[in-house]
């Protein structure tokens, strides 16, 4: 790599570094504020006195959190949802993307299927029709209501399809000559070389399932069975949208801000653990898939 040593270019690269670091810090600030809130006293939190450092340090919120069974129940539901949902997502993504990545010469109906898939990506049935489908298929109130309607993430299919398209045709020819069928080809050749892309779509699915709160609001009719993010969303009600004075009175008595902050912090831990391991694939996966496509 050729590096210029002139003062100007050093200054420029220093400025770029500073700007990038600054932005990275900006992203961290809200999270740090949450951590500080979770370790502060309740009155300090209600009084908006907490910045990036805890005020009146206390770990009471966390000792309360450990005993909050609904939190752990929802946590478990979320983990199960991610495990089932993300693996189903990845399986179906692979199975859809693989045939679609074949050229028309090998898969004559490919353009037709492609159009169907694209159509489904651009237009959806809308909230109410989807709700009715979920209801009439008897999925309402079950974990599968959160998994099956989004089982094929089409955006991910397209990323993976482009990645598959980018693999050299010679590989496939060689495999055919050696007598491999389509399944063998997919499992023994395409999947092993697509690990970066798989990690990418896998991460999308995991993050998507973990962070989604809205579907459970629609499809889960008992708060006990809420996944974690829906549970947390319920706790952080914006008081200015509450119009029932009785309830507002009740909510305003004691601020749960510190306790809720502890829950939010705890809920981000699993993703923070997964991220570093998948991140190196994440960047290469996305660029390879799209550039060569």
């Amino acid at each position: 790599m050729i590096t210029s040593k002139s003062f100007g270019s050093r200054a420029a690269s220093a400025a770029v570094w500073a700007a990038v670091l600054g932005m990275a810090c900006l992203c961290l600030l809200p999270l740090l504020n949450m951590v500080a809130l979770s370790f502060s006293s309740s009155a300090a939190a209600t009084g908006n006195l907490v910045g990036l450092v805890p005020v009146d340090f206390t770990a009471e919120s966390y000792s309360r959190l450990i005993t909050d069974q609904q939190f752990w129940r929802s946590f478990g539901i979320s983990v199960l949802r991610v495990a089932l949902g993300a693996s189903l997502n990845v399986c179906l993504t692979v199975l859809t993307a693989y045939p679609l990545s074949k050229p028309k010469s090998r898969f004559p109906a490919q353009p037709v299927y492609m159009k169907i898939v694209l159509f489904a990506m651009l237009f959806s049935g809308g909230t109410i029709p989807t709700f009715l489908v979920v209801k009439n298929t008897g999925l309402l109130n079950s974990l599968f209501a959160l998994i099956l309607p989004t089982a094929v993430p089409i955006f991910n299919v397209i990323i993976l399809m482009n990645f598959f398209k980018g693999t050299p045709e010679a590989l496939e020819d060689a495999a055919i000559i050696d007598g491999a069928g389509q399944w063998q080809m997919l499992l023994k050749i395409f999947l092993p070389i697509s690990l970066p892309a798989l990690a990418t779509v896998g991460l999308f699915s995991i993050v998507g399932h973990w962070n989604d709160y809205f579907q459970a609001l629609l499809y889960i009719q008992s708060t006990e069975n809420y996944p974690l993010q829906t549970y947390i969303q319920q706790l952080t009600v914006d008081l200015s949208t509450v119009t029932d004075p009785e309830r507002l009175k009740e909510l305003s008595r004691i601020s749960g801000r510190t306790f809720n902050a502890a829950k939010i912090v705890a809920s981000t831990v699993p993703l923070l653990c997964i991220y570093p391991f998948l991140q190196k694939y994440f960047v290469t996966g996305i660029t390879i898939g799209s550039v060569k496509g």
Partner: peptide, 14 residues
Amino acid sequence: VAFSAAAGEAYDQQ
């Protein structure tokens, strides 16, 4: 219980 949801948007949604 046919359905239950937290007061506000979530309940009105149900």
